[in-house]
Structure formats: C-alpha cells, structure tokens
Design a protein around this nucleic acid. Structure first.
Length: 218
DNA sequence: TGCCAGGCCGGGT
DNA sequence: ACCCGGCATGGC
C-alpha cells in the first residue's frame, strides 16, 4: 500500500519544510506547526506561521513572553486561536523553564523520555506528541491520525474495536522497519491519500489504494 | 451552502 | 473506560 501511494504522490517532503529540521529555528517551527494544525487545514496553519515569523515571534523567548491575546491574534487563521495560544505557551514554558529555552536540548532525548514529557503538556495529545518526536526530534515513532484510522478501517486492517490510537500505532510499528524516513513519508502519504479519496463521504474512484480490498462504506 | 480540516480537554456517565 | 460538547477560521 505504501508503494502504491508513494508511486502516486511521490516523496511528500513534509517537515522540515522551510528552515530545516537541523536548525533550532526549524525544530521550533515544526513544534509550533504540530500544535497549530490540530484538527485544522495545513493551509490555514501556514498563514498563522507566516504571521508569527513576520512579527518576529518565532523564538522560544518571544513566544514565552508574548501576551496570550497577542499570540491569539497572530494565529487567528489557524482557528481555535484562544486554546492554541494557551497550548503553544504551555509547551514553550517547558522548553523555557526546564531547558533554558534550548529547543534542541529539549528534543535531544530518547523516545522513552521525550514522548511522556510531551504528553504531560496540556494541549499535547498522542498525535501531536508523536509528530514532534518524529518530525522535530527525528525519532522513529509512527504518527496515527484520523485519515490513518479511516483508511485502515475501510481496508479492514483494523476493526472499530481495535481502532484506538495505541493499537493502530502498534500495528504499523510491528509490520514496518523502524526507520525515521519511512515513518515520516508514510504518514504523509496516508494524509495525502485520505485528503483526496478517503473523506467521510466515500470517493474511492481513482484512489491509489483502490486495487486493494476495501469497503467504501466502512 | 455546508462540510471538512494533519486533535485535545474537561466534565459527565 | 468511554462519550460528548466546545473550540473557530478559511477553502472547496
């Protein structure tokens, strides 16, 4: 299924997009993006990120010191701007107080400690935590999202009873080599495929996965 | 015109 | 352990 999707869309080259995941600025931008894109179209998130950059707020220090209302105004296009302003600052607070604002140091930990630390931040759930671990920290952890669940359900790889986050994640990680580059692109492929062909209303026609057994109504 | 978007939290059963 | 309402803008 991965080869079919990759053949259709090509390498997705998700994060890092702009600054590069090697630089602290790039890592921070990825973390901010993961929070802003919660249940939100990436297009809107790009506008919000551009606003933060233009306002010179895309640093740990500036995000930490900014008033919530100021932040909310800048990230308005991303929706849920009040909750996201708070979530952004609760994340930044950990980086600021625990690691002197050094985002690279904050991320430079094994999965076994970084992931729980992220889950302890109010506003960071399993998907956002895994996205930060995979895309910003470069750790091999599989990211599960609504499209992953929907596609796997339609293809009978999971059942409604086994469709919880942890089960789907485990399924992927036990059947795939634990490679960062693969996990990175695989998640992106699922999202791209889902956006075009696996919305709540069934439109499987032309889907790169159409030749695999599936039930559009599932 | 609705429906949907790269979720998560808090309060209630 | 689930279930649900709330959060909100912008594009197709």
């Amino acid at each position: 299924m991965y080869r079919a999707m990759h053949g259709r869309w090509g390498e997705r080259r998700w994060w890092p997009s702009r600054a590069g995941a090697e630089t602290p600025e790039g890592k921070l931008e990825i973390c901010v993006g993961t929070i802003l894109t919660q249940n939100t179209n990436w297009r809107n998130v790009e506008t919000a990120i551009a606003n933060l950059l233009a306002a010179g707020k895309m640093t740990v220090g500036r995000l930490h010191r900014a008033r919530p209302e100021t932040l909310a105004k800048l990230i308005r296009p991303a929706g849920y701007f009040n909750v996201k302003a708070r979530r952004l600052q609760s994340f930044i607070a950990r980086v600021h107080t625990g690691f002197g604002g050094d985002i690279a140091a904050f991320l430079d930990r094994p999965l076994a400690t970084l992931r729980p630390a992220l889950l302890g931040v109010n506003g960071i759930g399993p998907e956002t935590a895994d996205s930060i671990c995979l895309y910003a920290a470069g750790l091999a952890t599989f990211v599960v999202d609504a499209y992953t669940r929907r596609i796997f359900l339609r293809h009978g790889l999971i059942t409604p009873a086994s469709a919880d986050y942890k089960s789907i994640k485990r399924l992927c990680e036990t059947h795939l080599p634990a490679e960062v580059a693969l996990y990175n692109d695989y998640h992106a492929q699922l999202v791209e495929t889902g956006k075009h062909y696996c919305k709540p209303t069934a439109r499987c026609d032309g889907c790169p996965l159409a030749s695999f057994p599936h039930d559009p109504r599932a």
